[in-house]
């Protein structure tokens, strides 16, 4: 009996198709980015990179990421802890609500924030009277980025913590450990890998977020342009090489993320085979 796809011809065909598609859709664009960025030679690449506005965009992107990742780490752990360790009315609803940022288009998210925090918005007007500006400034960018990336950590942790159960924590508390000790010495080591993985995903998305940020940033060159916005603006200015130079930075970050993810998975697989 031949299982489906077991015939050598079929197998070769399937592998061939997969390879061609991967090359066409994934590899080629990646190569194209670097080819375009380096079209004018390495000198022009450096010149584009050290452009005042590009440097500002890099700085802003770093700032946004540095704020978003830790905030969402804490928030994600808190949420996963709440959902998996306690039973309360509305627990299921909360679990569904976590997914809203994934379900909703980032542009819509941006618009909602604009509505809330804009100068004529519900909260924005009140904040404005204290001279606090959220929209068209970095706090707005951080806010929408947090919104868009907040499910990543919780989504990684919830299934894991559900599977692991609370027995070890219960054992720890019967041994007299305080809440903080239990978290630090029992819970954290168990979820370490998932947490790191969640952070990597959050980081990747925070760096690359375009839709929501473009709505709330207002595209003020050198002030509220993150790297993805900078790419778009340079391209609209017919500065193709400049656009691709910035894009190559994003691509490089993406590759680093993938490498980190692969390394983590490899380590997890190795630990499993040892245990």
């Amino acid at each position: 009996m031949i299982r489906i796809g077991d015939a050598p011809g079929v197998r070769r065909l399937l592998i061939g198709v997969a390879l061609v598609l991967t090359a066409l859709f994934l590899l080629l664009p990646l190569v194209a980015i670097f080819a375009q960025a380096l079209m004018g030679g390495i000198d022009l690449y450096w010149q584009n990179l050290s452009d005042r506005y590009t440097l500002a965009a890099i700085g802003l992107t770093l700032l946004v990421t540095l704020l978003t990742v830790p905030i969402n780490l804490v928030f994600g752990v808190f949420l996963a802890w709440l959902v998996t360790r306690f039973s309360f009315p509305g627990r299921r609803l909360l679990q569904t609500l976590i997914d809203i940022p994934f379900a909703v288009s980032p542009v819509v998210a941006g618009l909602v924030y604009l509505l809330l925090y804009g100068r004529n918005g519900w909260l924005g007007g009140w904040l404005d009277s204290y001279d606090i500006q959220i929209m068209f400034a970095w706090p707005g960018i951080v806010l929408v980025t947090i919104f868009v990336t907040c499910p990543f950590v919780a989504r990684e942790l919830i299934p894991l913590m559900q599977a692991q159960g609370a027995r070890e924590e219960e054992a720890a508390v019967t041994l007299g450990a305080s809440g903080w000790t239990i978290f630090r010495r029992v819970t954290l080591p168990k979820i370490r890998h998932a947490l790191l993985y969640g952070a990597i995903l959050t980081n990747a998305r925070a760096v690359g977020e375009f839709g929501a940020v473009s709505v709330v940033a207002g595209a003020i060159r050198g002030q509220t342009n993150t790297l993805p916005l900078q790419v778009e603006q340079l391209y609209q200015d017919y500065n193709t090489v400049g656009a691709f130079t910035s894009a190559s930075l994003l691509a490089l970050l993406a590759l680093l993320t993938l490498a980190a993810k692969a390394a983590l998975e490899w380590r997890a697989a190795r630990r499993e085979s040892l245990a």
Binding site: R167, E168, A171, V173, T174, S178, R185
Partner: peptide, 16 residues
């Protein structure tokens, strides 16, 4: 439970 001074053994061991 922290201050009850009990020892508890679980069915599935619950070792760290």
């Amino acid at each position: 439970v922290r201050e009850r001074r009990i020892g508890f053994v679980f069915q599935h061991y619950a070792l760290f």
